[in-house]
Design a protein around this nucleic acid. Structure first.
Lengths: 196, 196
DNA sequence: GCTTGACAATCTACCACTAGGTAGGTAATA
DNA sequence: TATTACCTACCTAGTGGTAGATTGTCAAGC
């Protein structure tokens, strides 16, 4: 049926990315198929291959989108002129929102857990996104020290790793424990750990 | 070919559990098949159904084994008469060893990440195992306070969650970053956080 | 203004392969 | 002789992926 009839959905490609992302967050990379996506968008699965020739392409494109989204988010945070503590809190809030009542986890955490089954290029993309997060966190910690908000000694890079790992684990475990408070409690512990 | 010929392998069932566990740790629950297991053990896949009628049964049995293993481990630690700090370190060491040079993660973390694709009974089993870990950690923290080793204030249960989440996240991220030190650095941060 | 043709986005129909799972047979052991 | 631990052979339902037709849209040429 030719061109998009223009009324259906604004953008099949971005709808696909959106639904695929959701499925990775809820079920994992290996637990959804092109058929699942097709049914959700009410299209035939061959159409998905038009946008993403292989599932690997889809996965990589999806992660690259997250990279761009991280850029946008970081710039938006910059514009809010929050102090470092506020920026860290914004980071926690972002992940708390992403959790959607313990139904979803971070897509990067999901993919990391299935590491051995991921194609190398997808692994690379995930690796890069993790690094980006940690670099940003390191920057926030650095500024927070200068401002006297984080007094914990030691390499900021290692503290950034600490934050990142804890956030990922907290999202996953809060879902497995079906405990809405779990994530916030871990975030609280992290704040405390960085102060003193 | 009838009975085990008694010379092949000691115990097909436990070999199956062992290999399945390894595959969950390296690739995830949805990324291995009965065929994969069959090839590794050099048997036909129908034979696997003799021991584990469904993949769900296999998963559950596997997690219950981990529960028993946790029991054994905890009792062994008890017998070593370590102080609470030493016990916590033993906990970290256990997971550091399990990582196998950044090739494996905790099977519980792997399953937690694929949560939405797991059958409910398997979810239950995972949930119970997570709880067991956290209860044990809470106990160690309690004793550590009495001994003046952990001076951080707050509910021990929340600190136990903190430790558990961080350990899980650290294992996953260390693999995704291919960084052998990652886990130990996070463990170090945790120790520090609990002291003061 | 109408025709034409290129292109974008979708479709139907298929492929080879793998998934988990079942039925029923067979051989060694206790 | 019953049971245990395997086997061969098969089933159905999917998997990711491909080939090639189809059709709405738009821009250029007449």
């Amino acid at each position: 049926m030719g061109r998009p009839t223009l009324a259906d959905s604004k953008d099949t490609r971005s709808e696909l990315t959106k639904v695929a992302l959701e499925m990775i967050q809820t079920k994992g990379y290996n637990a959804f198929s092109y058929n699942d996506l097709a049914e959700r968008l009410n299209i035939r699965k061959a159409s998905i291959h038009y946008y993403f020739p292989t599932k690997e392409d889809l996965g990589i494109s999806l992660i690259q989108d997250r990279l761009k989204a991280a850029d946008v988010w970081q710039k938006a945070i910059e514009d809010k002129n929050l102090d470092p503590q506020g920026q860290l809190q914004a980071y926690f809030d972002y992940f708390a929102g992403l959790s959607q009542n313990c139904t979803r986890i971070c897509p990067v955490g999901a993919l990391s857990s299935e590491w051995g089954s991921l194609p190398p290029k997808l692994q690379q993309a995930v690796n890069a996104l993790v690094k980006r997060h940690q670099v940003w966190l390191s920057g926030v910690l650095e500024k927070g020290r200068a401002a006297g908000q984080f007094n914990k000694k030691g390499a900021v890079e290692e503290q950034a790793q600490f934050i990142y790992a804890s956030v990922q684990g907290a999202l996953q475990t809060s879902r497995a424990q079906n405990n809405l408070d779990y994530f916030n409690q871990v975030a609280h512990q992290l704040r405390e750990a960085l102060k003193a």
